[in-house]
Design a binder for these strands. Structure first.
Length: 907
RNA sequence: GGGCGCGUAGCUCAGUGGGAGAGCACUACGUUGACAUCGUAGGGGUCGCAAGUUCAAUCCUUGCCGCGCCCA
């Protein structure tokens, strides 16, 4: 006998070990079997499980378990990502907390050793947490982006792309994080609106000449007053860059400045002459219409500089301080910086610059203003556009086929609208800066000789050979983490080796991820997969929602609204957490997670548990001889049809990534069909005399319980596996549920049985309603009389008499010619049923109740009459719709007649 | 400024061109051992607002209002 409730905390680790020990997480060794594979979005090795991971991995596990039950050879490839900046940051913090020396004092080799030690020690945390959710990954194949094999893939990809001219080194503006002192990609920059200022400065014309500048206008916008000026006003939000200006731009059609283009101004403080150029970047409507151009410190200005041939002048060092020595004589503007300012932080430099301009009488004004400022998403400091030598990928070339693949349907997004986001970004893709000035990561396989010539090769020996034996030094930098995760779908399968796994499991079947890494990761896997494997990495991409708190706010540590999935697992069990996430995963909407919801699904698990308990108590055990197609009892025919319909609804939901529909189809079947009705129907049968019916019902019930366990297994693996074992019966089970066969359709739908059971359910429901409305005491067991029914009805009533009596609490149910005096009456399927209740109920109330019913029915009738008398409706609506409305109308009419007759009998 | 999405019961959310559903919460009543982590019954909605298309609009189109996210 089963315990009263399922104990998740005790059962989960046991069941998980059982699955793993049985080797069920590994793809089955059948070369004929169809394959199904998913690569896990590798979590950061530094990470711990948050609710977003829980959702992401639950959905993957649901798919994996479903396809495994379909008999496929299934691989769920797990692993972690080395997460360059994030991991380096964690370890540096540890060093600081221990009062140890910094990474630079420690030296590269010792530091990297230290990171590896930390990785070995606690890198497995998040994967162990996934096990608690029930994730059925093939742990024997766990990979890490810095494993030997994956690193080899990185080297090969880098060298090949370099040789194909798709990777190059260049001095360009990049987003520079002064805290980590590394370049970061534009995706790692967070633009935030902050309070700032607009400073207006006067730049004097170099030749001392003057021009007339309009300062007042009439209604038509015509200038009415002018002022004589010997300067141009420019406005900036970043005064610290003034010394790096190499031009002032005005719009080519801006008449106010037409005569000044080609002249020069004398840049204050720096004391150099810079030209006034005409460029469309200048917006005549904005400020004075003239803009300062600082090509080395602003992305827009960089482009203007290229167009106009303006030189680049760099002011800052790697820590975003004004330079105090020359590091690159081609661009550094040291001689523009007053000696006493050298080495100042950029924000101090700003103050000094503004103050000096004010002293010089060149500060034209200051306005408060909201400005967009870029912040490093990891460091939180203001990112500086900075001119450095970096490695770049020609992403636009790689993007071409990646765009085409989605356009022509080799890969589909689900929901489809995410392809817009993908296209938008891919079609405007910028060169991808892949070098990072970090130590933790894949070191760039490029070596330099004394003259700065570069040699790219997979090893130092090869590079030296290419250099003709000269001494070389390796590039100090490492690659962006996403460079290696872009290879994940094939590098984890053994590429560049031609392994069996690679042949069997690439392309993978689907990628499951959140929208926030479409650019970072999905797009790049598409590019690299197509380039190196010549095939898309996955035909389907399922994009799921973000998990928010119950009020819709983003979860964050600072808000304190973070829900820890493992706490939920502790409290309600992994099954409840998984089911909740799946049931709420409707396409295109964020998930609001609340404890109440999890509790509700925990209760659902308990309901299932108790249903199984009932089955065991009544000897409903699997019967190997049982043939669902040959059952005789209407109840059983109906139940089998319902089970089959539920099975296909669940399958349909999963095939189309509608997890919520799949989950709720299973839920409704188990609770509202199997428990609420079937088990209640079974009770009187089990207590009855008909041994054949009893035996058939036991076998059917056991069979359908198996179906229920199978349908729920992908969502609630633990409790279903436990019940699978506990309900095995003396024969035992052939296999664990995790590898049992998904139920196959057998054509069990039975319209006649369905019709009869629908009638039975509504008869019972109507009687219960009457009892409730008329306050008939629970103890009262009136006789039920069907007034003037035919032989078929008599047959039905006889067949289900025990069920009706028990579930509607009647003493008996039979045909009668007329309703006895003092009866309450209801109408079900056009038949009137009378319950003699003289002295039990208030007949005035019964009259009122019937009047209300009649009124309601009349309302429906007049609505339908109106519709059916509309010629255009009858002419234009599809015939089946018109017929259905007519049938409804006839039903209501018959019902109204019966109700009116019933009312008349009461007088 | 461009893009995506949302507004349906008190709350959290499904859903469909043919008079709207679930869970939770709420109210009343609970009887024969599956289950009180439960059962039975009930109340509760101008489907954001307006116009259009249609025989028919909560659903399609447009505009507006409110809210969220992404990109510039």
């Amino acid at each position: 006998m089963l315990e009263k409730t399922f104990e998740p905390n005790a059962a989960e680790p046991r069941l998980y070990a059982q699955w793993e020990d049985a080797g069920t997480f590994q793809p089955k060794d059948d070369p004929q079997a169809e394959t199904y594979s998913i690569v896990i979005p590798p979590p950061n090795v530094t990470g711990s499980l948050h609710i977003g991971h829980a959702l992401n991995n639950t959905l993957q596990d649901v798919l994996i378990r479903y396809h495994r039950m379909l008999g496929k050879a299934v691989l769920w490839q797990p692993g972690t990502d080395h997460a360059g900046i994030a991991t380096q940051m964690v370890v540096e913090r540890q060093l600081a907390a221990e009062g140890n020396i910094s990474r630079r004092d420690m030296g590269r080799e010792a530091f990297i050793k230290r990171v590896w030690e930390w990785k070995e020690e606690s890198g497995g945390t998040i994967l162990n947490q996934l096990r608690r959710l029930g994730a059925s990954c093939d742990w024997s194949r766990e990979r890490f982006t810095m494993d030997e094999g994956l690193s080899k893939a990185v080297l090969k990809v880098f060298v090949e792309l370099y040789e194909q001219g798709l990777i190059y080194r260049d001095k360009r503006l990049v987003n520079w994080d002064p805290h980590f002192q590394t370049a970061i990609s534009d995706l790692e920059v967070e633009n935030r609106e902050v309070d700032g200022h607009f400073w207006r400065f006067r730049y004097p014309l170099a030749d001392g000449s003057t021009y007339k500048f309009p300062i007042a206008f009439d209604e038509d916008g015509q200038a009415t007053e002018w002022e004589e000026r010997d300067y141009i006003v420019v406005a900036t939000t970043r005064p610290e860059t003034v010394l790096g200006d190499t031009g002032v731009a005005v719009h080519p059609e801006d008449e106010r400045y037409a005569g000044l283009v080609g002249k020069t101004i004398r840049l204050p403080i720096a004391d150099v002459e810079i030209p006034i150029v005409a460029d469309e970047h200048a917006d005549p409507e904005q400020g004075s219409g003239a803009v300062k151009i600082t090509p080395a410190h602003d992305f827009n200005d960089f482009m203007v500089g290229e167009r106009q041939g303006l030189p680049m002048v760099n002011l800052f060092d790697r820590e975003a301080r004004l330079i105090s020595e020359i590091t690159d004589e081609k661009v550094d503007g040291l001689d523009r910086i007053p000696a006493e300012w050298r080495g100042l932080d950029r924000f101090e430099a700003r103050e000094k610059l503004v103050a000096r301009m004010d002293e010089l009488g060149l500060l034209d004004g200051i306005e408060d203003r909201k400005v967009q400022q870029p912040f490093g998403d990891r460091s939180g400091v203001v990112v500086e556009p900075f001119l450095t030598d970096q490695w770049f990928v020609k992403a636009d070339v790689l993007a071409r086929d990646a765009i085409a693949a989605v356009e022509d349907g080799r890969t589909d997004f689900h929901p489809k609208n995410w392809e817009k986001t993908y296209f938008e970004w891919m079609r405007n893709i910028q060169p991808w800066c892949i070098s990072r000035q970090l130590w933790w990561g894949h070191r760039i396989p490029a070596w330099y000789d004394e003259d700065g010539n570069v040699f790219v090769a997979e090893s130092e020996a090869e590079a030296v050979a290419k250099a003709g034996g000269r001494a070389l030094t390796q590039d100090e930098d490492v690659l962006d983490t996403w460079f290696s995760s872009a290879l994940w779908p094939f590098s984890t399968l053994g590429w560049p080796e031609e392994t069996d796994e690679l042949k069997r499991f690439y392309p993978t079947s689907v990628l499951v991820t959140a929208f926030d890494i479409i650019f970072f990761w999905v797009a790049r896997m598409m590019m690299q997969g197509l380039h190196f494997m010549k095939e898309v990495p996955f035909p389907d991409i399922y994009i799921h929602a973000l998990v928010r708190d119950e009020h819709g706010a983003k979860m964050s540590k600072s808000k304190g609204n973070v829900i820890d999935p493992l706490e939920l697992v502790d409290e309600f069990g992994a099954d409840a957490v998984r089911f909740t996430l799946a049931a709420l995963a409707a396409q295109g909407r964020d998930i609001r997670m609340s404890k109440d919801r999890v509790e509700g699904y925990r209760n659902f698990g308990t309901k299932l548990w108790n249903a199984a308990r009932f089955c065991l108590m009544n000897d409903c055990l699997p019967d190997p001889e049982f043939d669902p197609k040959s059952v005789k009892q209407t109840v059983n025919q109906w139940l089998l049809g319902e089970a089959e319909a539920a099975t296909s609804a669940v399958a349909q939901g999963l095939e189309t990534y509608r997890f919520n529909e799949a989950a709720s189809a299973a839920y409704r079947f188990v609770w509202n069909v199997f428990c609420d009705w079937h088990l209640e129907f079974a009770k009187p049968l089990f207590n009855g005399e008909d041994e054949a019916a009893k035996a058939e019902t036991r076998a059917t019930t056991a069979y359908v319980l198996e179906v229920a366990l199978k349908l729920l297994h992908p969502f609630m693996p633990f409790i279903t596996e436990e019940l699978w074992a506990k309900t095995a019966g003396p024969e035992g089970r052939d296999s664990l549920l995790i590898v049992a066969d998904w139920p196959q359709p057998q054509g069990l739908a039975n319209a006649a049985a369905q019709d009869e059971m629908n009638w039975l359910v509504s008869l019972i429901t109507e009687i219960r309603k009457l009892r409730s409305e008329m306050n008939i005491p629970a103890k009262a067991r009136p006789a039920g009389l069907a007034i003037s029914g035919d032989a078929a009805l008599a047959e039905r009533l006889k067949r289900h008499s025990a069920l009706i009596c028990q579930l509607a609490r009647l003493d008996s149910i039979a045909l009668a010619d007329t309703a006895p005096e003092g009866s309450a009456q209801i109408v079900v399927s056009e038949t009137t049923y009378a319950l003699p209740l003289e002295g039990v109920i208030d007949f005035d109330a019964e009259r009122t109740r019937l009047d209300k019913e009649i009124e309601k029915t009349a309302g429906e009738i007049s609505r339908l009459e109106k519709k059916l008398s509309n010629e255009r409706f009858v002419a234009n609506a599809p015939a089946d719709v018109v017929a259905a409305e007519r049938a409804k109308m006839a039903d209501y009419a018959a019902q109204k007649d019966a109700l009116e007759a019933a009312r008349a009998r009461l007088g």
